[in-house]
Each structure stands twice: as structure tokens, then as C-alpha cells.
Nucleic acid binder design. Sequence first.
DNA 1: CGTTAACATACCTTGACAGGCATGTACGGT
DNA 2: ACCGTACATGCCTGTCAAGGTATGTTAACG
Lengths: 110, 110
Amino acid sequence: MESVFTVLAEPSRRAILGLLADSERSVGDIEKRLGMPQPSVSKHLRVLRDAGFVESRTDAQRRLYRLRPEPLMELDAWLAPFRKYWSAHVDALERHLDRMDEPTHKEGKK
Amino acid sequence: MESVFTVLAEPSRRAILGLLADSERSVGDIEKRLGMPQPSVSKHLRVLRDAGFVESRTDAQRRLYRLRPEPLMELDAWLAPFRKYWSAHVDALERHLDRMDEPTHKEGKK
DNA sequence: CGTTAACATACCTTGACAGGCATGTACGGT
DNA sequence: ACCGTACATGCCTGTCAAGGTATGTTAACG
């Protein structure tokens, strides 16, 4: 049984969830919007499904995937104890996000 | 630069953050409470530190680690678009339950 | 100034997982 | 019945990260 966090560690998976936040989508739709090979999409959806993030219904040959709230609620619940911490630092997030604006950079040996 | 999600994918790391949510702690303290070897603790703290989750101050030979809010705020921000989604579901569920207005009503998970 | 305590880091090995590719399956149209 | 579309799955391989062990570093103390 995969942890919610393990599943979300994959950027492609988060991207898929982002798409599904807008609306229900087919595999081919996701494939085209994210520009990734279809088997990858299917595999990621499989993981998301096993973890309860999504569910699918069948429409002819298409499989339409949509979000399920439970795992995200679990994440929200995990986050709860920490929330009291940043009530003081409300604007610190913006400074933090500004710093992470780097292209994919692979170096950095020390 | 490691993603917030990648860092949180490790259970030991989440356990450490859980401890630090209570209070500032030394490496040895974490080591004993989690029952894991000291090098592991140091390595995880290193990852947490590089990702901005924690910071340390020096007290004699000890290093005291404490939480930093930014990455957790980032996680909270990521979660925001989905929050409205499941709150809609909860609302729908409540409306649904309102309709079946029954006197003897215990909680029911599907 | 040698020793011990507290922590960090370097090295190695192993396992998990994502990507790529090929193939399997299910459904619809003609 | 055949073919194309839409999606799933199996296999293989490279990569990367976590755990274990050993060793380095810094500070306190007699």
C-alpha cells in the first residue's frame, strides 16, 4: 500500500491531478495535454487509482478519469498540526517561491 | 533542488517533522525517540535542511533543529485548488444527509 | 592534549521505480 | 469478419536514493 506522499512525489502524477481538478478527462486527453507517451499516462493513472486518488468510468473505448477526494483530505489532515506554525509567517511563502525559479539544472557537486 | 513532495515521501522524514512540530530538538533526541541510527538522522536532517523544512542552531556540541514554515506552506498552497473540490463533495454529502432527515442517525462511512 | 561526546560526511551496496518499447485487450465502425 | 481506435500491461534497463558502516570534525572536560 503506497503512501499518499510517495504517490505525489512524481511530478507527472501531480500534473495529472492538476488536470483532473478542472474536469473529468480521458487518457488520450491527458496524453495530449501533458505531451507524454500513452503507456506512461496509463501507468501513472494506475498508481493514482490504486492509491484512491482517482476513479474511472467507461465511455465506449474511452476511460474517463476523475478525482476522488479522500487521499487529498488525508494530506490536508497530515498538514493540520503544522498550520499553527505559519500563521505568523504569512508572507514568507512568496519569498520562498521566488527562490525556486530555476530551470532543470543537473549539476551541483561540492 | 528537491521537491517538497519528494522530501516528504520518506516516512522517517515525516516522523522527524512530527517531532519538531512539538518543539526544537537535538539530533540525539530524535535518534532516541525514533530509534534509528544517528547517521540516518543526520542525513535526513540534511535533506530537510536543504529543502528548507528545518534550520539548526548550535548549542555546544549539540545541534538543535527546528521547523521552518515555508515548504509546508507551499504544500498547503498546492493543495488549495483541490480543497474546494472536496469541500463541494462534503457539502453535497451534507445536503444529501439533510434530506434523509432521520431521528436515530449514527455516523456512516460507506 | 588526550579522550569522549555529539554530529556530519564519504563510500558502498541494494532495491525501487520511472521510461521506453512492444504487445495484449476491448470496443466501434464499416 | 476486419480494421482502427483507445487504453492497459508486461518486460527490460538505467537511475537514483536509502541504509549500513566506517571515518572525519568540532567542542567540552579533566
